[in-house]
Design a protein around this nucleic acid. Structure first.
Length: 797
RNA sequence: GCCGAGGUGGCGGAACUGGCAGACGCGUAUGCCUUAGGAGCAUAUGCCCUUGUGGUGUGAGGGUUCAAAUCCCUCCCUCGGCACCA
């Protein structure tokens, strides 16, 4: 019988849809399993085979978990706000709502044609007012709790997207979206106080099962460091510096302050002109220039003034230099050239004093010694180790009112407003009398007005500002003239909490039902690309932890277990992209080989989290395997299997179950192939029960084919409701094994022995073996090593 | 520079707790079938040689061990992230 995948796949996709096979059973008493994909942006190109890789993996897990008796929640939705739809609208004059809807229906078709088992009744869309009503609601909660504020800030500005960006959205000085070099711009911005959650975000990482890589990236991004803030006096003024190395304080030979530091305006020094010129130049440097000049440090001394080192009263010079960052710590540092690489470089260039105060064994000439060690040249603190000295010196100064313990973070608050059209309006009203007033909860959502012109203004104002009938409103408090906030929320807002809305997506009274939240959270398995490590995955943890503090959610973390899907590269080895023209859409593969082949191939390519190139020949190999399986299974007439076939089937069962539970998808396919290679030699030994077992095991990978063979075998109900089989370990037990015989660690013979043969018997057999004899005879046997049922190693001299 | 992951045939990759390296697939070769094949089937396939009961082999070098892809040390390379964070 021919494997007609087109007919089969159509037939069963229709069947599953008609029978609501993917619907989540809300009333079930079974244990829950929430398996989630990072939801896609509905782009005009649709999805390619790379996107599908993660979706297929979660689908396999979802199908297996259902069979294992779990009540599985496996939803999907659309992260549909964002620039591409808006830019498309600007170019073609078609409203984003229309293009988005069109794109969604296309991707939905692609997903269905791949046999993905999503519960479509829970589909959601971030641009749906019924959804973003609650995004706005969470924003109001943040605002009411002092975690959202508006401030005039020099922020990252993308001149191409004409909008402000968060720190996390600037990669290598370029816009994460479009790659344009970013600049700085002073705009009145909404900012979320993610820094208030820095410690909680750090601590939470210990409780979740995430890839080490992502955890490390988040840790580094948050960048917590403990140290001391130390006051130096400059004439009648004081300046604070932050240091993690209070132990090196006696080696401090000058101070450096950032060009933006306000104290510069208050100090009287001789070379004012020179300094102001330097500051001016520093301000005009772009992000890129600052990065590329890391090696060449520049600075200017403030002539005629000195700072006093509080620990020994020593007078030291003061510099302005742009290697000190204003936004970190206090914007000023104490320079210890002997024990800090940057200070060392600077001191060498400007010929400044270098005083060593720490001794240690890895110390080298001609460079700074940055490790901990033992103090010297440090007065009463000589002989202490660095760790003790930090405490003692800090404490000594604290008593004199010159120092304080301090923790600093690299993490900065989240710039949350965008000057673009296609995003959630920020539900705030500006009233001249009352100031910033929240839109009352019963007036949510603040709907995005339908407009003809989307062009960003580029002035730092949103295009919404031009729609006067939308902007001008009555103040909800005093009833006077007021204006709406015209900035919109960033791309990331909607994805911060969507996993919660799936639990109860039609609730129009509250954000979601508490009982449902308790039942389903946290997400048990979350799958997506690693590119969101410090964007979506950090932002959503922040919102979640905030909602936890408010008692809205019951878990501290949203995603218990996270796995990253590796990219699929184009056959040319490059990343798939529209501009390179190397994108492979799933449609053409499904058309030529079927969805089951596509699914199996994507899993077979290699380890799930690794990026691997697409190989058109490899697809054919998997296709051949499925055809072979189809033909052998559909032609089988036997009732019973032979003992060997039964054993092999249970072994397969064991290996597939084990590897799937470890998120290994490539090896199970290999096991199925191995099994079929074994069976094709002994077709007449294969019986119905074993076919059934294999079909259930294979059905998460190739659901259409398995369902069809299942039916052809006379089953009246869907394979989807079959229980995941458990291997019978007794059937797997072998009676004999092949024992490897080594002489001096080299394999010289293999002997079939009974399982459980003793060392003595095995040794005797080995010594009597002709081939072994040739290596051993006439030599002195020093020792014999024996590993039960595996190996014997005879060591000779 | 720092952090993380990794380096196994011509290619993608297997290998439990140290115990037969190269499963499975691709490619290649030869043969069969075919009017034809970029279809199908069969067999072979790490490398080397003097073709054996041989040698050698998991980035390089060293070590531990009866035994190392796996453990330890030194180094090299690739990928991802951060990048003057005091």
């Amino acid at each position: 019988m021919e494997y007609n995948f087109k007919e089969i796949e159509k037939k069963w996709q229709d069947y599953w849809e008609k029978n609501n096979s993917y619907k989540t059973k809300e009333d079930s008493n079974s244990p829950k399993f929430y398996v989630l994909d990072m939801f896609p942006y509905p782009s005009g190109e649709g999805i390619h085979v790379g996107h599908l890789k993660g979706y297929v993996a979660t689908d396999i897990v979802a199908r297996m978990k259902r069979a294992q008796g779990f009540n599985v929640l496996h939803p999907i939705g659309w992260d549909a706000f964002g620039l591409p739809a808006e830019n498309y609208a600007i170019k073609h004059g078609i409203h984003p709502e229309i293009t988005t809807a069109k794109n969604i229906s296309n991707i939905k078709r692609q997903m269905k044609s791949a046999g993905l088992s999503y519960d479509w009744e829970r589909e959601l869309n971030t641009t749906d007012p019924e959804y973003y009503k609650w995004t706005q609601w969470i924003f109001l909660k943040l605002f009411e709790n002092g975690l959202a504020y508006k401030k005039l800030l020099p922020i990252n500005w993308c001149p191409s997207c004409k909008t402000g960006l968060a720190n996390e959205e600037v990669v290598d000085g370029k816009c994460e979206r479009c790659g344009t070099e970013t600049g700085k711009k002073d705009i009145d911005q909404w900012v979320l106080k993610i820094t208030d959650y820095a410690d909680k975000l750090l601590e939470g990482l210990d409780d979740i099962d995430w890839p080490e890589k992502i955890k490390e990236m988040q840790k580094n991004w948050i960048g917590r460091s403990e140290g001391w803030e130390i006051k130096f006096s400059i004439g009648s003024k004081e300046i604070s510096v932050f240091t993690t190395r209070a132990d090196t304080l006696f080696g401090c030979t000058y101070l450096v302050i950032a060009p933006e530091h306000p104290l510069i305006n208050e100090l009287e020094f001789k070379n004012k002109e020179e300094v102001l010129e330097y500051i001016d130049r520093a301000k005009n440097k772009s992000e890129r220039e600052r990065i590329s000049e890391v090696k060449d440090k520049t600075g200017v001394e403030l002539k005629g003034i000195k700072a006093i080192n509080p620990v020994n009263g020593k007078e030291i010079a003061v510099f302005v230099a742009d290697y000190v960052l204003y936004h970190y710590g206090t914007g000023a540092v104490m320079a210890v050239p002997a024990h800090d690489i940057r200070d060392f470089e600077f001191a060498q260039k400007y010929d400044l004093e270098i005083i060593e105060v720490i001794n240690g064994k890895n110390k080298k000439e001609g460079t700074a010694f940055i490790e901990d060690g033992t103090l010297f040249n440090s007065g009463d603190f000589d002989g202490l180790n660095s760790e003790e000295a930090r405490e003692k010196i800090g404490e000594f100064l604290r008593k004199k009112g010159k120092a304080e313990k301090k923790i600093n973070y690299k993490l900065r608050d989240w710039v949350f407003s965008r000057q673009r059209y296609w995003g959630e309006p920020i539900p705030i009203i500006h009233c001249e009398k009352c100031g910033m007033v929240v839109v009352p909860e019963n007036e949510l959502p603040v709907k995005l007005p339908y407009v003809e012109k989307y062009q960003p203004t580029g002035t730092g104002e949103s295009p919404l500002a031009a729609i006067s009938e939308w902007v001008n409103v009555k103040c909800p408090e005093c009833g006077g003239e007021a204006k709406r906030e015209t900035n919109t929320m960033p791309q990331w807002a909607g994805s911060c909490w969507y996993y919660l809305r799936y639990l109860d997506n039609n609730n129009n009274k509250e954000i979601f039902d508490k009982g449902k939240e308790k039942k389903w959270m946290p997400v048990d398995l979350y799958v997506g690309g690693a590119e969101h490590a410090v964007l979506h995955l950090l932002y959503s943890r922040f919102w979640h932890k905030f909602m936890y503090d408010l008692g809205i959610v019951s878990t501290k973390e949203p995603f218990y277990s996270l796995r990253n899907v590796g990219l699929i590269m184009a056959p040319d080895g490059q990343k798939m992209s529209k501009s390179k023209g190397n994108v492979i859409p799933p449609d053409i593969i499904i058309d030529e080989f079927g969805a089951d082949t596509l699914r199996c191939y994507e899993m077979f390519m290699g380890p799930f989290d690794q990026s691997i190139g697409w190989n058109p020949q490899g697809v054919k190999g998997v296709y051949r395997f499925l055809i072979k399986l189809w033909e052998i299974f559909s032609e089988c007439q036997n009732e019973k299997s032979s003992k060997e076939v039964i054993a092999e089937t249970h072994k397969l069962n064991k290996k597939v179950s084990e590897d799937l539970s470890k998120m290994k998808f490539n090896t199970p396919i290999a096991f199925f192939m191995e099994f079929m290679n074994f069976i094709s030699e002994r077709k007449e030994e294969l019986g119905k029960e074993e076919i059934k077992r294999v079909l259930v095991l294979l059905s998460p990978f190739a659901p259409h084919l398995c369902e069809d063979l299942w039916e052809k075998m006379g089953n009246k109900t869907s394979i989807m409701i079959e229980k995941w089989p458990k291997p019978d370990l007794n059937l797997i037990k072998e009676e004999t094994v092949s024992l490897v015989v080594q002489v001096n660690g080299k394999v010289r013979e293999k002997m079939d022995i009974n399982v459980g043969t003793s060392k003595e018997d095995a040794e005797k057999m080995a010594k009597e073996n002709e081939r072994v004899k040739k290596w051993v005879d006439g030599k002195e046997i020093v020792e014999v090593f024996f590993v039960q049922d595996k190996l014997i190693n005879i060591v000779i001299k």
